[in-house]
Design a protein around this nucleic acid. Sequence first.
DNA 1: CCACGGCCTGATTC
DNA 2: AGAATCAGGCCGT
Length: 282
Amino acid sequence: MEQPLNLAATLESGQVFRWNRKGEKWYGMISNHLVSLESNGNGLEFETTLKPAQDMEGLISKYFRLDDNLPMIQSSLDWDPRLAQAMNTQRGLRLIRQDPWECLISFICSSNSNISRISGVMNRIAREFGNQVMLGSCVGFQFPNPTQMASVGEAGYRALRLGYRAAYVDKTSKILAETGRDLEELKSLPYLEAKAWLMALPGVGAKVADCVLLFSLDQLQAFPIDVWVRRAIEEWYISGEHRSYVKLSEWAVEYFGPFAGYAQQYLFHHRRTGDFSGGVNT
DNA sequence: CCACGGCCTGATTC
DNA sequence: AGAATCAGGCCGT
């Protein structure tokens, strides 16, 4: 593998919420197969429930977007000093191409919450309603599909401590189960059309939609703006000025270009880890 | 079009 | 200790 990949930075960057680290190995689900991953020099070792195991190589490559030419993408962004610094301190941090359904539920659950709590919620949903799979002595759970999730009901999700998001998850599951819409189809739509479709779902606003588009639907211009990214942009780029979400996302694509989503991920991580000098770290 | 308050939960701060 | 505050927002007014 020639493409840079930092497992820890990538899997802990708040794009995905169900990977577990045990020693040097990371355990998680890719395309409903349990996988363990371990960095090995510039390569990656893995074990998987998938047979034949070598088929997992392509799935891993797809999952970590190794088909994106990261050096090329970075060189299209490093004219910006902040971004150059962010990319330098976050080497090998990549966007992930994850399952859109699980991604959608993750980010519906992310509202007014935090990473550790989102992880708890997502693990409980999978453990309660997903199929169990084993890799050696390790247990994993597939994320339940829309039909499985549609039968749970709001009270069931409340019991898993989703709070007010329970109703959103319940309704969105039922819509997806009843319409049978395959979220993968949104990959072929123009960004704004795909976004509008997602935003029609309960619990999905502009920010959640952008996360789903960027982390699972190949819309690399999507620029999710959370409090961290907003702080970074307002402080570093537009001198404290406040702008609406739509104005900021338009600004982002104009400023950073078609890979604005990568810019967002580096800025987010950079800002959130406080790994910069001279700025206010709250 | 924009601003505002309420909302579940849980960790941390005051 | 118990009350605020904040956390990767959304929705209705």
